[in-house]
Every structure is written in C-alpha cells, then in structure tokens.
Nucleic acid binder design. Structure first.
Lengths: 224, 224
DNA sequence: TCAATTAATTTTGTATACATTTTAAAATTG
DNA sequence: CAATTTTAAAATGTATACAAAATTAATTGA
C-alpha cells in the first residue's frame, strides 16, 4: 500500500487507485469491517478514506447505508473532456493574464524539448512513447494549471481526471502524425502564454483538448 | 444546529454555513476538542465534518497539524464567475442536446413566470425583490444543471458557489432595468433549450453569467 | 543572555467499545 | 403458502481511551 503521513491517507490513495484502475467496479459496496480486515487497519482510517472519496465524487454515500462505487456512464466520460477543455482553456487564459514565473517557464520548456526529441526521433508508435508523452504532456498541462493561480480551478481539473478510464492521461494521440500535431499545439499555446495573449491562449488550449478528446474517446470505445 | 440524518452531516452543514457567512474567517484554525465542546458532540463527527470540508476545498489540511479555513483571494472570487460561466454554458449545451423532461420544463416555466411577474409589477429595487429573484434564478439555473445529466458538472458548479461571499446567489442585478435584462436572457436561453440549439444555448448562458458577474463583482467590491 | 535540549502539554491519529440503524433471517398469522 | 411481524445478525454512527506527533514550556549549559 502507498506509504503516507497517516494511515487514512494511505487507505484513501489505495482505494482511489483501486477504483480508477477498475479493480473496484461501479456498484461495489465498500464495507468498513471488510476493508479494515483486508487492509489491516481499524475502521477509523477506513471511514476517513470513504468520506474523502465520497466528497471527491468517486463514491455514492447514503447515511446509515454506506458507500458504493459510483456509476460513470460513457456519456460522462466523454463529457469529462469537454469539461476539461473549458477548465484548461480558462487556466490558459488566466496564466496568460498573470504570466509564468521562471520555474514554470523552465518546466514547460523542458517538456517541449522532451516532446520535440520524441517526435523527431521516433519512427513508430508504441507504448513506451505513449508513456513518455503522457509524462511530458502532464507536466505541460499541470504547470499551466498551476500558473492560473486559482486553486478552485486546479481542484476541478483534478476532478475531471479522477474518473475511471479517463484517469489514464497517456493517450493523447494514436499515430505519430497526430502526436506531432499535439506537440505543435503545445508549442503554439506556449507562445501565446509568453505573448500574454489571453484569448488566444484560451482558444488554442480549448481546441487542443478537443483534439486530445478524439484520441481519448476512440481509446475509450475500443477498450470496451 | 441544522438537523440531519447523522451528527456528522449536521456538523458539516453548520461549519460550512459558518465559513460561507464569514463567521469563521480565513486563517481560523479549527481544533477538534474545542469544536466538540462548543457543539456538544464527540470528536468523531467533528473529524468527519472537517475531512469533508477539506475535500470540498473550504479548509486547508496538513497531516498531524489540523485544519484551517482557507484563504480566498479576491481574484479567485472574481474568477469563480468565469468558471461558473464556462460550467453553466456547458450545462446549457448538454441540456439542449439531451432535452428537458416535463418536470424540468414546468419548473423553468414557473421560474420564468415568477420572474416576469416581479419584473413587470415592481417599481423600485429592494431587498425583498432581490431575495425572490435569487430564488427563481436559482431554480432556473439548478434545473438546467440537472438537465445536463452530468454529476461531475453539477458537483463543480456546486463548488463554484460554495465560496465565501460568492455563495450569496441573490445579487444578479442592481437596477430594475438590469433585472429586466437578466430576465429576458433567461427567456432566450429557455427558447434555445426548447429548440435544442446546443451552441446557441451555451453562448447565451455564458454571456448571461458574464452579465451577472458585473453585478456580483460590483457587490463584492462594495462590501469590502 | 541565549541557544540548544529536554520535558510537559496539547493536538491529531488510531483502535475499540458501545449505540443506533439497517438488513437478513426466523417465526407467526391469516 | 404468502404476507406480516418479530427477532437476530450485521453494518454504520458515536464516544472514548490510548498512541503518536507537534507545540509549548522549562531546563540546561556555554
């Protein structure tokens, strides 16, 4: 189990991971004594974790009845990308308005450099590439979200990812050509941010996420 | 204290209300024993409430250090209306795509009728009007959010309101003229929903919330 | 005097016992 | 036998005792 400052946090991470990975499918009832025996802790940290995951929207809770892994209809998974597009678009706008600090610029430039390397050197698409791309892509998007200086927005963006089957941020393209396209979009967004062109940054980011949506939804439909 | 199925939920509601109303200002440390004595319950429901409010973004939590009412900079309060505009715009789009059921149409039509009454009969702006307007306005927006059939979106919209000083949904206009404008916007949005014009509904809703933002931000700046 | 260390206190984290509610099973009744 | 009621079991909610960490106060030593 993930090691953390408190057992409650460890249990929370563990259960979240189980839900997002599909190990605990929708409809699964999470019972306190059962979990406490399985995970070797008392009911107290279990309850804390369940409450936290319910607040995060992953569990349904009915007083005196307990917690159930909630259902995520396919429509909501697809919607999640629309929502993410709006939120990340806003983040890009705010980041452009407020500017990037040195660290943020560095992180983004490293992410772009890594992306450039991958895109120019690769000859065929494979899982390894997708994994690396997922990392650099996440760094790019997370940094812009951070630069928006808005915790509410960051929290919402976080939520739009913590959904089963959507939480895999690796799939943003299928072919190398698509990947090159995504990379050039990143580059244009970064330019807009540096130029402090708020509206442009927002539009570019929104369209970028819409492009990612194509690949992600295709992956969603294929895996089931 | 608010009566609920469990003490935990009552405490949660009570503390949330205290934070949103400003009774517990930013930076206030919420200590378990102190609260349990004040509210006459054990630490258990107190802890449950604190965890829940932290997950909702109202409290900052540091393991082994406890919970503190988080700071909401003015910029985030203003941003909240931008976020709300995007989210409600999406909700309007989804609602138009998916259609309204009979109950939802009825609720919205009643809200529009009440709004029409108020707008045509009133001669001067006052608190009573604002209160009624707040209610009918909330019914209108909540119903569209519900019709979006997206729980994640609803949850996020909920979050964009549960912010101190933003949580007062009554102020959407200052003059009667502005109020008439808001009302006509509602009417146009409803028309777009009935016509299943998704893009139109989204744009109208986004602009509508932007208009509300003017009044709300003016109120924000005035009250401090 | 003051910095560092130690000790005491306070606060949060966890386990557990008990209370209450829900759910399942058993018994009763028509 | 089916439907209802009663009873038993199991699950969640709450209180409390203890453990561990953090904070504060006291002590020590240069």
């Amino acid at each position: 189990m993930i090691s953390n400052a408190t057992r409650s946090l460890s249990v929370t991470d563990h259960l979240r991971e189980s839900i997002l990975s599909g190990g605990l499918p929708a409809g699964t009832k999470l019972q306190e004594v059962r979990l406490s025996e399985e995970l070797g802790v008392s009911r107290t940290p279990i309850r804390a974790a369940l409450q936290s995951l319910a607040a995060a929207g992953l569990l349904d809770y009915v007083p005196n009845r307990g917690y159930v892994v909630r259902e995520f209809p396919m429509s909501e998974l697809v919607d999640a990308y629309e929502i993410r597009g709006s939120l990340e678009g806003l983040a890009a706008r705010f980041a452009a308005e407020r500017g990037l600090d040195d660290t943020q610029r560095t992180v983004i430039e490293q992410s772009l450099a890594a992306g450039h390397d991958l895109v120019t050197r690769s000859t065929t698409m494979n899982d390894h590439i997708l994994r690396i791309v997922g990392q650099t892509n996440a760094a790019f998007h997370d940094t812009i979200m951070e630069a928006s200086l808005n915790r509410l927005l960051s929290q919402m963006a976080q939520m739009s990812f913590q959904i089963p089957r959507v939480s895999n941020r690796n799939i943003i393209a299928f072919s190398l050509d698509e990947l090159r396209q995504r990379h050039s979009e990143h580059y244009l967004i970064y330019e807009a941010l540096l130029a402090r062109s708020a509206t442009k940054a927002e539009t570019l980011m929104r369209n970028h996420v819409a492009s990612v949506k194509f690949a992600a939804v295709r992956a969603l439909r294929e895996t089931r």
